[in-house]
Amino acid sequence: MKLVIITGFLGSGKTTLLLALLKDLSSDGGRNLVVLENEVGEVGIDGAYLETHGLKVKELYSGCVCCQLAGSLVTTLSELREALDPECVFLETSGLANIQNIMGTMEKYCEVVGPDEILTIALLDIERSELIFEHDIPVIQNQVKMADVLALNKTDTGEAGEAETAAAELERMNPDAFVVPMSAAEGENLAPILDRLREWI
């Protein structure tokens, strides 16, 4: 079982990207993919949205898997492996999740939880680029530094040249990451991420 962690700040487009990726990957046929959805709010909304598109979704809400629900994350991943034996679990974190803590939990309980490999996709919203580049918000800085893929989202809403400038800055912040300017809502430039996922899964 592999684990894809889709992280990003509140409103960065995680659910939209997840849906677009899974719709495409599911079209391959025969894939056993499961979504684990985490929301900090007391009611689950994204899980219901994904289920209306026919995806298998397990929800963890009313807390964050990076802190209050870290134990539930471990238990749930273990249960999913036991019950469904998925090829890959896609974990959508809450918008306030500290990815560093989640990676720490995975490392600590790796033998129990059992993801063979982890790929982290961090979404960054170009509409709110000041959160990335102007405010030193540790949660967002960690997302940038620890991601394997940095998806610079909503490039359809930015001004000319804005995406290129932001992408160059992200490459400087995390030279090891694969930076992809894209629009999840418009389905623009998802192919590089899909190719990476198909190769990896």
Partner: peptide, 21 residues
């Protein structure tokens, strides 16, 4: 951060909405 939700009822399809700015 976000204002998001869904409305259901009347036998129709769920209506989802979000505001992020």
């Amino acid at each position: 951060g976000h204002v998001k939700g869904m409305m259901t009822g009347g036998g129709g399809e769920p209506l989802f909405f979000s505001i992020t700015t």
